[in-house]
Design a binder for these strands. Structure first.
Lengths: 237, 237
DNA sequence: CGTCCTCTTGACCTTAGTCAATCACAGTGG
DNA sequence: CCACTGTGATTGACTAAGGTCAAGAGGACG
């Protein structure tokens, strides 16, 4: 499988961290606990599933996905992280997922052994894990119970801030309820996140386009014409 | 939908905690932090999705599932808890799942506000959340990428201690690799956990029976004839 | 013995997957 | 500047896996 080979090549040739600190200031919850800030290129691997877990990471800027592979090459992207998310914590001594950047990213890295030492760190961790758990629960519903259209609609809605949630206030302006999205994911990555094939994702996107719900400026850049009508297709209404 | 109505009836009529302490001694990680121990009947609801989150719970004995419902009645069981698991922590002020017992259970309950106060509690929490996260990641792979047979095989394998994992040593005795399981879940609950329909679960179980991999003594009492051959069907080999 | 409930089985249908051809676009090199 | 190549995305035709609907079997219980 193409992406698998690419990743393996990355490991040795491309994806190694540059080790320099970010040039622009970026807030990090973990920076108070020492460690270093590292920049990663797009599609660089931070760590591999099965590697020994040695560090705790915080995504400071950019976007990172965590995925698991089955031996025959099937892939499931289990989380798509946003700035502020903490990752790398493992219940065994090995990482249970591979962490790969979707865009160039800045990551704050500290030693895992710090975790036992700091009370404040534990508190931050609890909050972060709880919120990731919540996302994972929602995602389980998506993977287990939603149709292809509902999955894609849910995926797009998650990229719209303050909309589609329980406390969604609806559109501010009924007549002007559009939104511009930059996905930062290929069709393959979206498919592996939503438990679909690349062809199905493509077909659903084309269909939404045909029905006037979205406009596709670039494969990667999508305009939602009416957020509310897309939200109606997520299965949560 | 039948189970939905049943749950709603339970809420008022059956499922309320009896409030008595367990008669037999049971170790609990949370018992040091005060609170009370509560016994629940089979299919009792500990809390509902959307209810205000006020308490932190530890399953001391028995079995509990966490599930989410879509407005049209589709259900996804997102976790099946075992003794020692901690639940009830929410990222908002509302529970994101319904918690319902699968068997009669004993639950240790403490006030959520305790969490901020105790360092030791935070530490316990971090460990528990991390391990639940690991399970959720695996489950995402199951829901997103596995076939019906692989899902059922994985489900059954998870009920066999020390087998099927990464460090699985294989059968101790090649000729005598059987195992007896008590599921404690209806076909509907299994289906909702695995993202399948009740009919598909039933068909897969019948098929495994026909192929001699399992023996079905009762609907929820299954004997695995050869653990290793079932493990071969989980998709992880 | 009848009722209720869950589970099983069969027939049929729908959804999404598979396979393959084509398109679009960016980068490369003559 | 433009043909060539490679990659990712789209589309179409077909297939297969699992869902739907309906009927019947098997237990538990009053």
């Amino acid at each position: 499988m193409a992406y698998l080979e690419a990743s393996v090549i990355d490991h040795g040739a491309v994806a190694r961290p540059t080790g320099r600190t970010p040039c622009s200031p970026a807030k990090s919850n973990l920076s108070d606990f020492g460690g270093k800030s590292t920049a990663y290129e797009t599609h660089a691997v931070v760590y591999y599933e099965g590697d020994p877990a040695k560090r705790l990471y915080e995504l400071v800027r950019g976007s990172i996905m965590l995925y698991k592979l089955l031996p025959d090459g099937r892939r499931q992207v289990v989380e798509v992280l946003r700035p502020g998310d903490i990752f790398g914590l493992a219940s065994t001594d090995e990482n249970d997922c591979t962490a790969e950047t979707l865009t160039s990213s800045i990551v704050q890295e500290i030693d895992l052994r710090q975790v036992e030492r700091s009370q404040e760190l534990q508190s931050i961790l609890t909050k972060s894990l709880t919120s990731q758990m919540h996302v994972l629960h929602e995602h389980a519903v998506l993977l287990g119970r939603k149709s292809a259209v509902e999955r894609v609609a849910s995926f797009l809605m998650h990229l719209v801030p303050d909309r589609g949630g329980l406390g969604c206030a609806g559109p501010e302006d009924e007549e002007n309820d559009g939104f511009d999205l930059q996905l930062h994911m290929t069709r393959q990555e979206i498919a592996d996140y939503l438990g679909l094939t690349i062809e199905t994702v493509s077909r659903v996107v084309s269909d939404l386009k045909r029905r006037g719900v979205i406009r596709v400026d670039k494969a990667d850049k999508i305009h939602l014409n009416k957020v509310c009508s897309l939200c109606q297709m997520t299965g949560i209404h």
